[in-house]
Design a protein around this nucleic acid. Sequence first.
DNA 1: ACCATACTCGTCAGATTGACGAAAACCTCC
DNA 2: GGAGGTTTTCGTCAATCTGACGAGTATGGT
Lengths: 253, 253
Amino acid sequence: MPPPLEPPPDTTAHPDGGAALPPDLVTVALSVDLVLLTVREERLQVLLVRRGIEPFLDRPALPGGFVRPGEDLAEAAVRELAEETGLRHPPAHLEQLATYGAPQRDPRGRVVTVAFLALAPQSRTPIAGTDAAASYWGPVATADDGPGLAFDHATILADGLERARSKIEYSAAATAFCEPEFTVAELRRIYELVWGARLDPRNFHRKVTGTAGFLVPTGRFTTRDGGRPAELYRRGDAPVLHPAMLRPVPRLP
Amino acid sequence: MPPPLEPPPDTTAHPDGGAALPPDLVTVALSVDLVLLTVREERLQVLLVRRGIEPFLDRPALPGGFVRPGEDLAEAAVRELAEETGLRHPPAHLEQLATYGAPQRDPRGRVVTVAFLALAPQSRTPIAGTDAAASYWGPVATADDGPGLAFDHATILADGLERARSKIEYSAAATAFCEPEFTVAELRRIYELVWGARLDPRNFHRKVTGTAGFLVPTGRFTTRDGGRPAELYRRGDAPVLHPAMLRPVPRLP
DNA sequence: ACCATACTCGTCAGATTGACGAAAACCTCC
DNA sequence: GGAGGTTTTCGTCAATCTGACGAGTATGGT
């Protein structure tokens, strides 16, 4: 049986007119968890780690860790991301997803976790694993098969996927999956794999090139996709798309 | 100077194979804050409380409080909502907004808060104040004038407003502001006040009555708005609107 | 009875989408 | 070096949706 935990929250020694938190306050351990998505090998994949300790020993889990003193939430997320992937710079897209705090979600005690959604191209996530060397990419389609994710991470992953699918509808976030320069077809492949749907290449081309601020043409071309050379584009500066690019199958059948 | 806080997190006495949280773990106090919006007196208003204790004594703040042991986050939000407004049932719309955990956001120590967004009709928020008797409605346009909101609540309020403005675009959440039965004009007034924009009554009528699952006609009529009798509607069961109802002024001017 | 008010239905041009034809510009293979 | 395959890119066309606005309908007030 583990001993009672130390220390209490560092809520003292603040020069503030004698104001203090209530003495009977419940405190919780605070962690961040990451839903880091990328497109690899023609599939949407998520970064997972194999847990090296109890509970859920050897089970797959989302990468994450505890927030440190004096650290902001997004700061902790960026740090964990760097530790788990060797990622130098913050990813092109990182946003807070939601917070999960069910009382029994961690059998060790009250742990509340703030989940973040990150999107990154394959090239910038070498997984030079330092902290949890057991990190690996898992296809999202089967990520919750097999042993099953630790804690409530299956729920977090599902929420992250839904957020990603929805986000690329009305924002340019899908470019976060791409290399700095990419073709329209590569971007279309992102949409198709994230949504799990086929898109018409001609209509997609018209849409993305016609939406102001979405793509910036470079004037250079590549043939890496085979066929006729395709122009290379860079991300534009439009944070939102107007009008949105809607998923083919409406939400209500 | 306040004494060190007790107790440490209740992370012990869990029968779980001896797994325990790390002993040097940072713990935080956890609170929920509410952005409760309603439409009153032809204005979009937010529920505020005047703080009765330090820090930020007598300053306006968002209603909220600390999460209790064994309590889930949404549960704590509903409880606080009931305590601050006398609201019996959970509001028609309640969703997690975001979590704010900057290290210095509370001068008393490390307090992380999970903010919720709630939308309610005026009739169901009598403010039979029990807990913080000093709760009151403030117009959002001037809510951050005057003394200024406590803590980072101005940021939370701004995020909540943006979420609400965006949410009613692609979901039927605006009906959460309405009484159980309402006219198209009353719903249109909601949109106009939340967005701060004029909408054409004829196009709005066509849009909301033509979107499947948005409104359910009751067959009954009212003349409470003056003029020709208007049909009364109830909320439909469509969680999302397809296509969305877009704000008149695009996000990027 | 008349008028002001507000709801509801219609019309019409412009924008956007989905489906699809077809040309352009590369590749590989024979 | 040409044939055939692949992929990008440009157009066309009908259907749908939006924004602007005209007009009729059904009340309440004076």
